[in-house]
Design a protein around this nucleic acid. Structure first.
Lengths: 182, 182
DNA sequence: TGTCCCATGTAAACCGTTACATGATTGA
DNA sequence: TCAATCATGTAACGGTTTACATGGGACA
């Protein structure tokens, strides 16, 4: 059982869902392609952690709805007592910043600016999402409460990333002004 | 050419280095095991991006020192004009938070607390590292300047992670107090 | 007519970790 | 004596991405 399997259990513990929908909802937390998810789901079904049934839809293709079993819920609860693994982040921007001394100021600014744009969009999206959540007044211990806290987590990291790019851009642009004066 | 290859070029553009040393220095930015790095380095040598020579050391095993070639530097500079990829983070903590409503308060607190400990240690380490750097007064555009900015990047993200765990712990512990009063 | 979204699946290639294999030196 | 650090490499396995494959409905 890898983390992705537990991620699937985690979503299915809340409500039954199709592989396609799981793939979409998983992206912010544990990015995975459908080609990874579909075989995993059928494997988990063979392990009796899940059950499935086909649902016919009108104006949309048929879908296979997965539900979590008692055994699946037990597995998921056990996992919550397994020591937490460290997070893994791989960011090309760190490596590009590391060799930024090899390129020109304009390119350096373009690189950081492209990340800034990405983070601004992400933050806007998160603020939209969280404003939906606040209305349903949050009761501690409900799934929605933890959804809200996860949006906060994403907002914290995105904001700190944005702060860094803004600091970098200030320094780089100031430097460009100095250069142009010469 | 994958990102790891460029990461190796990025380090070797600053100074010649052994595979072992590259592996160690790479960890904070692009974690990789020696078993991934050694074959990559020899492949990159066959592509004439690197050259190598054996160095005999006293009281330590022999090492193979790699140096970047002109072609390697050209490749690295070209990479700095390729559009930046989005960062990828996979954090079990997000998934565990997502299904925290399934477990007890004490366990929830333990989970967040274990991440807090990890982040506090990381932050201490970063502050130590950065205090070394500040002394050599930083001149813009030098490799050391970008080193300093990368430490800042790490400090920003670690601090925001820590802020989130502290907020979570405040809420969870307050809730535990309420529960105990009943 | 072409593109996007829904929806499922497989196959191949690539990336990353764990395990196997060796061996000297330093310090607890 | 045992563990850690330095140092290099290969083999097997598992995780992830890209490409192949199909097909209907919505929308411009």
């Amino acid at each position: 059982m890898n983390t992705l399997s537990y991620a699937l259990l985690a979503f299915l513990a809340r409500e039954q869902s199709s592989g396609y929908n799981l793939m979409l909802r998983l992206q912010p937390f544990w990015p995975a392609k459908h080609s990874q998810i579909y075989p995993l789901l059928s494997h988990m079904e063979s392990e009796e952690l899940l059950t499935s049934c086909w649902v016919v839809q009108c104006e949309k293709p048929d879908k296979k709805l997965y539900s979590i079993t008692e055994k699946g819920i037990r597995k998921l609860k056990e996992w919550l007592y397994v020591p937490l693994a460290d997070p893994i982040t791989r960011d090309e921007l760190s490596m590009k910043t590391f060799c930024m001394w090899l390129t020109d100021l304009d390119n350096a600014i373009d690189i950081i600016e492209s990340r800034r744009v990405h983070l601004v969009k992400k933050l806007e999206h998160l603020h939209l999402k969280i404003s939906d959540k606040v209305r349903e007044d949050l009761e501690f211990g409900t799934p929605e409460f933890f959804d809200y806290m996860l949006y906060q987590k994403a907002i914290y990291t995105t904001t700190s990333g944005l702060d860094w790019t803004n600091m970098m851009l200030d320094i780089l642009k100031e430097q460009r002004t100095k250069q142009n004066l010469k």
